[in-house]
Write a protein that binds this DNA or RNA. Structure first.
Lengths: 166, 166
DNA sequence: CACTACTTTCAAAAGGTTTTGAAAATACAA
DNA sequence: TTGTATTTTCAAAACCTTTTGAAAGTAGTG
């Protein structure tokens, strides 16, 4: 397979995957492009490579920087900005977990805590509290596991992960 | 807090969470409604409770059945169908993992395998293959871990999960 | 069979998200 | 300061997904 074809396939595929993971298609494609680039790219190069508008490029590069998946790099003597991707896959996963935990898991736990204060004075209320408690327990377990994972270093995670599959 | 308010909050919250997990809003709300219902509900009851159309209800109930998150229940002497949710949270997670693994992880692994056959005859090609191999390793590790998890029983998973956080 | 209750389909409408690109803002250089 | 390259903003347009609801289909009942 030719390099260019392979690169395009990879970018498409990463875009599709990203869109299922709270990262929009273009954002994931920009990340993919930077991942496989041997050198930092300018906004213009990204726009050209992916055939996207300046607004779109700007917005998604910014979001990637917010997520900690891309870094700005300034070259001495160059006015324009260049961008490089976080290439360590474990770091990438960690960064995504941090965002999603904050935006999804934590709000849900808050709601579960709130609603579990309902009075158990009818069979319906009992069933409700039972289900909510069950989910709450699970959510808290997931939360502390992910918290540990985020704080841990790479080696520990790889080791534990491998242990799981034995 | 009143039961009804708590139920509505829970359904909204589950809907929002679901929409980040490849389960559309309404589908997740139907699941939430059935989760906290002490008895099986008919399509009409679901339509009324969530104020959705028959087409919408039908489509999402079907999808939930496909995912194995909801079961059809027939009551003797009743013509209409009733529905109950899978209430075991570990089962719910397993069912979701099965779907997402099949629809997301497996296609990506296929693409990674394909594109890693590119010739390493330039620095760009070398960088590309290096990044792809790295991701491939990770993806395969994730795949086998999830496969193990899906095949495992609940206790093993809880145990391992807890061990991870120590 | 005809009637009725219920389920399913699907084209059109609504709703939501992403993208565009022109204009404005910024920042450096001369 | 003026000119130029670059980045940022944002309203409108394009695009994609979900929802509606009427009509068609299905199946049990008398």
């Amino acid at each position: 397979m030719q390099l260019q074809e392979a690169q395009e396939k990879f970018i498409q595929s990463w875009g599709t995957l990203g869109s299922h993971w709270g990262i929009n298609r273009t954002m994931a494609q920009v990340h993919a492009l930077l991942l496989i680039s041997a050198k930092p790219l300018s906004a213009q190069e990204i726009m050209d490579a992916l055939k996207i508008s300046s607004g779109n490029a700007n917005m998604n590069i910014r979001a990637l920087i917010d997520w900690g998946l891309v870094f700005k790099e300034l070259k001495p003597g160059e006015r324009k900005e260049f961008f490089v991707a976080e290439k360590d896959m474990w770091e990438v996963i960690r960064k995504i977990i941090i965002q999603r935990k904050k935006k999804e898991l934590e709000p849900v736990i808050k709601v579960l805590n709130d609603v579990s204060t309902v009075d158990e004075n009818t069979p319906e209320a009992e069933e409700f509290v039972r289900v909510v408690q069950d989910i709450r327990l699970f959510a808290q377990k997931a939360d502390s596991t992910l918290e540990g994972l985020v704080k841990s270093d790479q080696k520990w995670f790889v080791g534990t992960f491998l242990n799981m599959i034995k």
